[in-house]
Amino acid sequence: MKELDPLLHSQLRLAIMSLLLSVEEADFVWIKEKTEATAGNLSVQIEKLSEAGYIAVRKEIIGKKPRTTCSITEKGRTALDEYVKVLKEYLHI
């Protein structure tokens, strides 16, 4: 049986990936609200997912305010798809 992707098998990182799966892009503040994570912890996990190429992070200034936008990449989508397949094998679904 295959191993679960350790990068995705973490509550917060999986939550971020699942949120981004259904949207084109999302703001850092929105992800923070939905995951109820602290800004510091969320930043660290987003950085890890970004380094793995699972999500794309865009930083810009909108109306004099900094804004961080995240979106899932094709690599991230494939990784999450594979993760769910392995999960289903574990659970015999």
């Binding site: 679960l4 098998h9 973490s10 509550q11 917060l12 990182r13 999986l14 939550a15 699942s18 949120l19 799966l21 259904s22 939905k34 995951t35 109820e36 994570a37 912890n41 660290v44 996990q45 993760y83 769910v84 999960l87 574990y90 659970l91």
Partner: peptide, 20 residues
């Protein structure tokens, strides 16, 4: 929410919850 590991069942529930 923290960056902790959890069970397979909890994983699937979290994915479904976040998508909703």
């Amino acid at each position: 929410m923290e960056a902790k590991n959890f069970t397979s069942k909890e994983s699937l529930e979290l994915i479904a919850h976040m998508i909703s």
